[in-house]
Amino acid sequence: MKDVFVLSLFFTYLLAGLAIAMPVGAMTVEMTKQGLKKGFLHGWAVGLGGMTVDFFLIISLYLGLASILSTPYIQIPMWLIGACFLAFLGYDSIKNSDQGITLTGDKPNQSFFSSYRNGLLVAISPGNLVFWISVFGAVLSDSYDTTQPVKFLIVGAGILAGILVHDIGLLLIVTITRKMMNQTMIKCVSIIAGFILIGFAGYFLYEFMITIKGIL
C-alpha cells in the first residue's frame, strides 16, 4: 500500500508539473526559438537551465526562503528588473533574428553550455522568479510539513518530472516542425518570439504597478 501511495503521489504531481509548464511563458518561447534555430539538444539545454532554477526554488520553498521573496517590498524591484530583462531579451531576439540559424543537418556554431546558460538567465529573471515562486507555492502548499521530508521530495521530484516531460514533448514537436522550415521561416519565428518576450515584459511591468498600488 505504501508503494502504491508513493507512485500515486508522484504521478499526481507529475501531472501538476506538466500542467504548470503547459502555459506559454518566457522559458517556452526561448526553448522553441533555440530549438528551431539550433536543434533539439540546444532547445533542451535551455529547458535544463530552467529546471536547475526550478529545483533550487523548490528547495527554497521547503526551507522557508520563499516567504522573504514574496513580500511586496522585495517583489517591486524584482518585477521591474524582470520587465527590463525580458524586454532586452525580446529586442535582442528581433535584432539578431537572422543570426545563429542552423538548418537540419548542419552543425550548430553555439555550444550546449551556452544554450544552458540562456535557460538559466531566463529562469533567474527576477520577475520570472516571483511568478514561479507563487506557482510553486500554490502547488506545494500541502507539502510543507518538515516532519515528512520524504513526501516533499516525492512531490518535488514529480513536479520536475512533469516539467521534463513537457520540455521533451515540446522539443520533439519543434524538431519535427524544423525539418519543414527554411531559414526565412525560422527568422520570422525568432522575430515573433522577440515580440512575445516583450509582451511578457509588459505583463511584469503591469504586476510591478499593481504591487505598488497594493502597498500605497
Rank of each mutant, 00 (worst) to 15 (best):
M1G: 15
K2T: 09
V6R: 11
V6Q: 08
L9S: 00
T12K: 00
L14A: 13
L14R: 02
L15T: 10
A16V: 05
G17D: 00
L18T: 03
A21L: 11
A21W: 04
G25T: 02
A26Y: 10
T28M: 06
T28D: 12
V29C: 02
E30L: 09
Q34V: 10
K38V: 06
L41E: 05
H42R: 12
H42V: 03
G43P: 07
A45F: 09
L48E: 06
G50T: 11
F55G: 04
F56T: 12
F56C: 09
I59R: 01
S60T: 15
G64R: 04
L65M: 15
L69A: 14
S70F: 10
P72R: 06
P72K: 09
Y73K: 02
Y73R: 00
Q75Y: 04
P77G: 08
W79Y: 15
I81G: 06
G82V: 02
A83T: 07
F85Q: 01
F88W: 13
G90N: 09
I94Y: 09
K95W: 09
N96V: 06
D98I: 03
Q99M: 08
Q99E: 12
I101R: 08
D106T: 01
P108M: 04
P108D: 11
Q110L: 07
F112D: 02
S115Y: 07
R117C: 10
G119I: 07
L121V: 14
V122C: 08
V122F: 05
A123T: 00
G127W: 10
F131G: 03
F131W: 12
W132C: 08
I133W: 14
S134C: 11
F136L: 13
F136G: 02
G137F: 13
A138M: 12
A138L: 13
V139W: 09
L140K: 09
D142A: 12
S143K: 05
S143G: 05
Y144K: 11
Q148G: 10
P149H: 03
P149S: 08
V150D: 06
F152P: 08
L153T: 14
L153C: 11
A157L: 14
A157T: 09
I163L: 13
L164R: 04
L164G: 05
H166I: 10
L172P: 00
I173H: 00
V174P: 07
R178D: 10
N182Q: 15
N182P: 14
Q183F: 02
I186P: 14
V189T: 05
S190P: 08
S190L: 06
I192H: 01
A193P: 01
G194N: 05
I196T: 08
I196C: 11
F200S: 01
A201L: 01
A201R: 00
Y203R: 10
F204R: 03
F204T: 02
L205F: 12
Y206H: 14
Y206Q: 13
E207F: 04
F208P: 04
M209W: 11
I210F: 03
T211Y: 03
I212Y: 06
G214I: 07
L216G: 13
